[in-house]
Amino acid sequence: MKENKMSITINAVSENIPVVRVAVTSFISNLEITLDELMEIKTAVSEALTNAIEHGYTKYSGDNPVVILNAKFTSDEEDHVEIEVIDYGVGIEDIELATTPAYTSKPELEHAGMGFTIMESFMDEIIIDSEKDSGTKITLKKKLRNKKSKMS
């Protein structure tokens, strides 16, 4: 079994989102992955980072707010990709409300409220671990389909 890990810490500013998106894409691009799967993971990661930066932290959040991304893949008979996006911000008070399609806490900023819907649709599993005033960890998991079709 092959395993690989990558960890990135960024300042919580939106200018860093494209940088991390590119890093995650290159990290998994050596796997037998379809362009669709690559796009799905890239989009889900972008949503999780956007949430962490735009909603996790407010202008009152500490001196140096950061977002951590941990990416991991295991490659065996099946390939699995797992990505964690962690912030130490305000936390999500009502997870059910936050994950409701088209709900946004910031409509004035033209957020579509589709972030969690996209993460749920494009990944196999999403785990939301959040505590008020101490932060949020989003875990995104996806099994790549390539190998299955190859063996059958």
Binding site: K42, T50, E110, H111, A112, M114, T117
Partner: peptide
């Protein structure tokens, strides 16, 4: 080449 939900917000706005 890439769009996430912010693009949906942009279009909807």
């Amino acid at each position: 080449k890439f769009m996430d939900s912010s693009g949906i917000g942009l279009i909807l706005g």
